[in-house]
Design a protein around this nucleic acid. Structure first.
Length: 109
DNA sequence: ATAATGACTGAAT
DNA sequence: AATTCAGCCATTA
């Protein structure tokens, strides 16, 4: 069978994140069976084309903050997309895992 | 095959 | 609680 690159698995997993929910890089890595590959997840999302159907904006770092460091406008775009889904950072500027954290495919979508 | 890079994380300060 | 350090991983040159 075709070896599915780690990148493809990451994209497939992120595609399952329901609207209005967020997940951390480490969580995605964990769901893929590689709990220490958080960076690999970030890298995978970094290769996404601007017209992708993958909801990359639903992935944030463990603190519930935007962790993008690429183009200057991307962080703002992510905040905007999240806000459009009802995901808003709390008083501290962090997104609450209790309210918006996605538990994974088995945790209930 | 080795070295460098980066949308990460946990532990130590 | 906030910041700093060092480890970990997949991918690219």
């Amino acid at each position: 069978m075709t070896e599915r690159s780690f990148r493809d698995e990451v994209l497939a997993m992120v595609r399952r994140v329901p609207e209005g929910k967020v997940v951390s890089y480490g969580a995605v890595a964990s769901l893929l069976g590689a709990p220490r590959a958080a960076r690999g997840v970030g890298r995978a999302l970094g290769t996404l084309p601007p017209d992708t159907d993958v909801p990359w904006w639903r992935v944030v770092n463990r603190n519930g903050e935007i962790s993008i460091k690429g183009a200057p406008g991307l962080p703002a775009l992510q905040r905007s997309l999240l806000a459009a889904e009802g995901v808003r950072p709390g008083p501290g500027g962090r997104i609450s895992w209790t309210r918006f954290g996605w538990r994974g495919p088995e945790g209930g979508e």
